[in-house]
Design a protein around this nucleic acid. Structure first.
Lengths: 242, 242
DNA sequence: TCAAAAACATGACGAATGTCATGTTTTTAT
DNA sequence: ATAAAAACATGACATTCGTCATGTTTTTGA
């Protein structure tokens, strides 16, 4: 009963997009030839909860695509404090950048938040793909541009907004990107502790807990890490930008 | 007496890089043919101090390269507070990203910090260039990757470091990127008020002034906007990461 | 060169947030 | 099912930082 025919397959079966990767834009915009070539270079790697995919300072070897699960990008300070820069979801690319070219090192750590599967490609093959396929290169430029805007928006929030507004903005963002319908509102598909939230908005666990307590009392949210529900998107939104 | 021969010009005079753009990597990595074509599409625009090159929300029309002067990228909050995301220096690219493709809007404002000259190119021509020249596309990917790392490093500083450490880090960064030797240390070539600093590190003018007063008392810096000197790079560096 | 404007400076005070301590609830693993 | 561990919760207090007020110094422009 599953949809086996890809809408863009204009020739033989050899060009079918394998199952499980239909949601990855970069693969779908390629020509059949380039996609076949890329699939030949991609290998799959699996990780369990809290595994490191790579750590800050490691040499860059691969270009990566998240296939399943959630990967967090983290930087840490000498004193051991951590800051989560981004939650990568299925379809997200990482290490598209310069570090992947000129023998650099990873500027941050990538860690799985649960069971994760990533597709990866040696950087020389990635480099060749980009040279051969303008479509791929443009897709990567688009993606990097979007990521840059995100990062700058995040810097703006950190620079100008109060902690409670940043937390509200975070919950809204996650509700949009990983929310599933729930009788009480929108449930987050990612498991997210108060400490995870704190790391993402640049505050302490205690402050995140206090703010969540207030949001709970105001009936904006409910539940804890395993089952976190946003009860009032609209009111949370107006709170975030006030 | 000026060096007229470009080291990479392997054929006739038509391929010479025009004066004033020798410092722009994107132009120098291109083949003679592509460079000639790109130069044909680039036009120059000049701006006086505090002019807007574009404003947040404006439709994107051009891809830009800073030729001379300094351009600041700013976002502002509904309440009128401002946050400076980045100082663009000669050779820097801007609007390389998705917004430049699909008819989007500028996520922030670009404003000149003094007399500025930028080279620009309609986005359709830019798009064609990237499709035709893998070298150009790779250069843009590299550049965007570097900018993304910068933005994430900035987010990390805002999330984890104290205000005085962020200011120290800012001064170090500017000393490296726009510093000129001075009998007393390193002088910054950009005019930078305490308010400019505040906007760049996510604090208020008063706090920036207080911290600068302390740095001055500790003989780390001296001078004001028009003539700002870093007297002790090394000590400032150890302060930034302590 | 001189007045006006911008930038710099500092104090007093309050609000927001971090730190430490202690206890409860939820989750995990056996 | 139950013990251990992790997550959540809350109070008390210290620190950082923002706000407002006021005055001085530097820069700008006629």
């Amino acid at each position: 009963m599953s949809k086996r025919q890809n809408k863009s397959s204009s020739n033989g079966g050899a060009s079918a997009v394998p199952p499980g990767i239909a949601h990855i834009p970069l693969l779908n915009i390629l020509s059949d030839t380039d996609r076949r070539r890329m699939l030949g270079e991609l290998s799959e790697a699996r990780y369990a909860k809290d595994d490191y995919i790579f750590r800050e300072g490691d040499p860059t070897e691969y270009f990566h695509i998240v296939k399943e699960g959630v990967v967090k990008c983290v930087k840490s300070s000498p004193e051991g404090k951590e800051c989560t820069l981004k939650m990568l979801m299925p379809g997200d690319l990482f290490c598209c950048d310069a570090a992947a070219f000129d023998g650099g090192c990873h500027p941050g750590t990538a860690q799985s938040m649960g069971d994760v599967s990533v597709l990866r490609m040696r950087k020389t093959a990635y480099f060749e793909l980009l040279r051969r396929s303008p479509d791929a290169a443009l897709e990567v430029i688009k993606y990097l541009g979007a990521r840059l805007n995100e990062a700058q928006e995040k810097a703006k929030l950190l620079a100008l907004d109060r902690t409670d507004q940043r937390l509200a903005a975070l919950l809204l963002d996650l509700a949009e990107r990983s929310g599933v319908p729930d009788p009480q509102g929108v449930r987050l598909a990612v498991r997210l502790t108060r400490q995870d939230m704190a790391d993402m908005i640049g505050t302490t666990t205690e402050t995140a807990i206090r703010i969540m307590s207030r949001f709970k009392k105001d009936r904006l949210v409910t539940g804890t890490a395993n089952r976190l529900i946003i009860r009032d998107l609209a009111r949370l939104k107006s709170f975030a930008s006030a």
